[in-house]
Computed example of a mutant assay.
Amino acid sequence: MTKVLIVDDSALIRRVLSEILSEAGFEVAVARDGVEALVKLTTFLPDVVTLDVQMPNMSGLDCLDRIMLQRPCPVVMVSSLTAAGAEETLTALELGAVDFVPKPDGVVSLAVEDLAPVLVEKVRAAATARVGRAHRLVERLRARRGEIKSPVRPAVPVRAVKSSRARDTGTPAGIVVVGASTGGPAALETLLSDIPGDFPWPILVAQHMPATFTGSLASRLNGLCALTVSEVTGPTRLEAGVIYIARGGADMVVSRRVSGLVVLPAPADEKYRWHPSVDRLVASAMAQVPPAQLVGVLMTGMGDDGAREMAALHKAGGLTIAESEETAVVWGMPGSLVRAGGAEAVEPLEAIASRLVAMVPR
């Protein structure tokens, strides 16, 4: 039985989370703050920890840092859906947390119905997460920050997309679509910060997140990447060498206007399970751009979002890259693409940028 340690200073939240997880078949223990959590880390020996961000005595971030040093295990943050909560949660993901869930607010009893399936799914996924890989990724990111990156093309031969001249309107010759979920923020930082400033195509990113988080994610990445990074909050014309982050809580789709290709947010489509939907983004891109002018990249994440449409893209003549099992925190999404036979290349995280650079013509 999977053992879960719930860490929260609110007795009500501890009770609610305990009931949800106990009913789902987990063995549960609780801690009132970070100090007590560190004691139970070595006595209860949890497989997963859910950790409140804001607590007295020891903050969730300080506790997380100690967990990763004392006894690394998968941690799911429980955070408020506010701008401040988003910043703290992204910091937690940088420190090694594998995922997060929204903290119930208002009338907690009314939020349980929505929270329960998300909490159970994410805790189950966290129990299978390769926390050692997440921790090593965080250490690599810390070591790399501030360095000038100049990725080189790989020595191994790769198939490249057919070159085509951009339209007179300035429409880019092609598009890169990237999908990620659990473990994605740190993985995206590794990938996108290694893309050189003269990269000729726009990069569209669907990272499963709520709306209050994606703006902070885009802002952080913009400060770390050679390319401009922005969150898509309205119809936006695609420009070469710009990274577009899908706004959370909705989907992002590619469309064509008189002025050229645009990307815009769309209400979440219920036929897609996760949002922003990678499958929907890829399908919309294929509807507007020849498959030979598209590259799909599917990275760490639970479930299979993106696998179906990227497999279709590959079958139609487009190029696809799946993150390898050796580096993915959760090999759900990229693993599904590989098993479907839809991956042109399977690469460890640190090699994806150079493979992508080699695939896209200058």
Rank of each mutant, 00 (worst) to 15 (best):
R220W: 10
A285G: 12
V16C: 04
P104N: 07
P334C: 09
S219A: 15
L137Q: 14
A226K: 15
A307E: 09
D62Q: 14
V177G: 10
R280G: 01
L191H: 01
D33P: 12
A97I: 11
R136D: 15
P267A: 14
A187P: 12
G296N: 04
P235L: 07
R136Q: 15
A86C: 02
P46N: 08
A129D: 02
P72D: 06
G60Y: 04
R257W: 12
M333Y: 10
E344P: 00
P46V: 05
G317A: 13
P157V: 01
E270F: 01
L21Y: 04
E113G: 00
M310L: 14
I245G: 02
S277R: 08
M310P: 06
L93I: 03
G332T: 09
T50I: 12
L227N: 11
F26P: 01
V152M: 11
V282C: 02
I195N: 07
R280L: 11
I203K: 08
R165K: 14
V107E: 12
S80E: 02
V108I: 15
P102C: 02
T169K: 09
I20A: 04
A246Q: 09
R145V: 11
L45E: 15
E325Y: 03
P210G: 11
A206T: 11
G183L: 00
A129C: 15
A187C: 08
A307G: 10
P290F: 07
A125Y: 01
L191T: 06
